[in-house]
Amino acid sequence: MFELIVQILSWVLLITGSAFVVIGGIGALRMPDLYTRMHAASVTDSLAPILIIGGLLLQAGFTLFSVKLIAILLFLLLSGPTASNALASAALLSGYRAQHSEEDKT
C-alpha cells in the first residue's frame, strides 16, 4: 500500500516535471527577445529539476544514489542562476536592449 502511494507520487512528480520541461522549451522558441526567452528557460532550470529529481529520489529510496541525486540538484540550483545572471549581465553590458510593451525607461 505504502509502496503504491510512493510510486504514484513519484509518477505525478515526473510527469509534471516533463510537462514543465516541454513548456519551457516551447517558451524559449516562442518568446520575442532574449530576456523573455531567459524567463522561459528558467522554468526548465529551476522547477523542472526539482520535480524530476524529486521523482527520481522517491524511486531511489534511501541509498547512495539519492545522495548523488541531491548533490546534482543542489549544484543545478546553485549554478543555474549564476549562469543566467552572467549571461544577462554580459548581454546588458554589450548593449542588448530589452523590448518593452510600455513606455518604461531604460
Partner: peptide, 15 residues
C-alpha cells in the same frame, strides 16, 4: 544574437 545561442546551449546542457 550570440546571447540567444549561448542561452540555448546552456539550456541544452542542463537538459
Amino acid at each position: 544574437s550570440h546571447y540567444d545561442r549561448i542561452l540555448a546551449v546552456n539550456m541544452f546542457g542542463t537538459k
